[in-house]
Design a binder for these strands. Structure first.
Lengths: 153, 153
DNA sequence: CGTTATTGATCAGCATACTGATCATCAGTA
DNA sequence: TACTGATGATCAGTATGCTGATCAATAACG
């Protein structure tokens, strides 16, 4: 077989593993307890008030069955509230709490630091090229996963 | 906040998500039931007969607590046997079964196809560049995760 | 030689991700 | 309006990954 390091699947897993570790370390260092997944959901609810769970899942490419637990934990941490929509009683409207907004604001520097750290082995130019190539590969494979990314509602 | 697609952490997660989905689809299509993680372990045991779990975990960058369950499942599928080492009774020596070798051989084309499919949006040159950049970023961040990659024992 | 530190493996517990099923609700149509 | 299909959410079950603890066995040291 090929070396693991020559297989894109292994590299994908490994890079993600490092990205998560760096994120958690930076966020904890800043005094918060939030996972990358929880952060993405929180940030997206902030820019899309009263979004429902399916639309949110589409924007950040989460499986619909995963989003339930993620929101459970954001609600438990008092960062988000989940209300039944009056227009469609199947849907849950997600809204920020004050503490959610405050947390998001305070945590942003740590999140940005994490993004830099996970690319620290690359030059600026290389980092930009890596992101471009990832975006391109992802766009081509978007529909291949159960939780593709979807633009607005 | 930035768009998710401009954050390397999100791209890492998304690319990994697609890589896993493609792998599972190709392998199932070939008539097998093996995860990317199980495949990497199986392939590495094949090239390192009688390897112990910690060394195996280092070679493929798995957490030591994760490897136990992965090997459990390979043993249950009759692809691997786990024997207590006679030289160090703490250690478990991992060895392929005939069925493990046969499975590995038969599954290889599907695994290779998966690696191509997950990069299908890129030209040959771009694919090579993406892998180079991932390798470089990973090398720089290797020690930041709990399960860094380690060369031979 | 005996005490201490380290190491290989496992376990309990938690958080993503997924498969597939179910339930309530809504939308479209006859 | 009654029926059918689609949709939002949740649940049970399985597989990574991690944190931190534990246990047995080995290594290292005085």
């Amino acid at each position: 077989m090929k070396e693991p390091n020559e297989m894109p699947g292994h590299l994908a897993r490994r890079f993600q593993q490092i990205a998560v570790a760096v994120f958690l370390a930076e966020v904890e260092n800043a005094g918060f307890d939030l996972t990358p997944v929880q952060y993405a959901a929180l940030a997206t609810i902030n820019t899309h008030p009263a979004i429902d769970q399916i639309t949110l899942a589409g924007l950040i490419a989460y499986d619909r069955t995963t989003i339930t637990g993620v929101i459970d934990r954001l609600v438990q941490k008092n960062l988000v509230v989940r209300e039944t929509s009056s227009r469609d009683r199947r849907a849950r409207e997600l809204k920020m709490t004050d503490e959610g907004r405050r947390t998001l604001r305070k945590i942003t520097p740590a999140v940005e630091a994490a993004q830099r750290i996970m690319l620290r082995g690359l030059t600026e130019k290389e980092a930009a090229e890596l992101m471009r190539l990832l975006q391109k590969a992802i766009a081509a494979g978007n529909e291949l996963s159960r939780a593709p990314q979807r633009d607005g509602g």
